[in-house]
Write a protein that binds this DNA or RNA. Structure first.
Lengths: 126, 126
DNA sequence: CGGCATCCAACCGGATACTG
DNA sequence: CAGTATCCGGTTGGATGCCG
């Protein structure tokens, strides 16, 4: 399926009155799991290969250690990522994505695509 | 492109180290525009054909008139939706999606898809 | 390096009441 | 119906400093 067909399918499905209740519920479930400013950028960063705290931190503009620490803990608890202690000296901590984490791939890709098109639109206007 | 291929492509692209800076920026731009609990459900509702305030309100579980009012105003200002006064008696107000609004279709579809799969996973576990 | 503790401001958003 | 007004509590999240 190419982009044009995908878009048409999107609009068709979005315009359909069927299963609206189920869809809004699914939507709100997803938004709940991804709530806040940082979970998606963190997932993206870890899926991009970043493994260590400082690396993840540096890869996300604006995040603080406090928020990264908090989110990593929460996301570990929710099986979104795995925290591994590599028993070297000094100890190295590694965060890695779970399959569950990868399941957000399509959402993140669509968001990146939208963001790029958005910047393009802004450039064209000015 | 089928789902399996799409997933592989997602992982491939997500694993690529190129353009990480541009992508995280695009991602954060998108998250900024869509920030908060309600914008995505509202977009979905309006794209689903809901036009009037009460209809939109009823279609989104949990939203209050205050938040809906606030978001609709903000989203009108940002050209995401259009507010039309139908000069009937009594006056009818209609909200409709702009092209800009439709551009979120793919993101919303992916979120609905994820949410449904999420519920399915939970059902299978229990 | 990989965090935790504390303080604090902003705001998000719920409840409720009210208006034309 | 289509909102506005007010109140206010909880959470988000930034700044900073500290620890092993």
């Amino acid at each position: 399926m190419n982009d044009k067909e995908l878009l048409e399918k999107s609009n068709e499905i979005l315009s359909s009155p069927r299963n609206q209740d189920e869809e809004i519920q699914a939507l709100q479930d997803t938004l709940y799991v991804l709530s806040g400013k940082w979970k998606i950028p963190i997932i993206n960063s870890i899926c991009n290969g970043n493994r260590r705290f400082r690396d993840i931190e540096r890869s996300i503009p604006g995040i603080t250690t406090r928020m990264l620490s908090k989110e990593l803990k929460e996301m570990s608890a929710n099986q979104l990522i795995k925290r591994t202690v590599v028993d070297d000296t000094p100890v190295i901590i590694e965060y890695s994505p779970t399959d569950y984490c990868h399941s957000f791939g399509s959402i993140i890709l669509e968001m990146i695509k939208w963001g790029k098109a958005h910047r393009q639109r802004l450039r064209e206007k000015s």
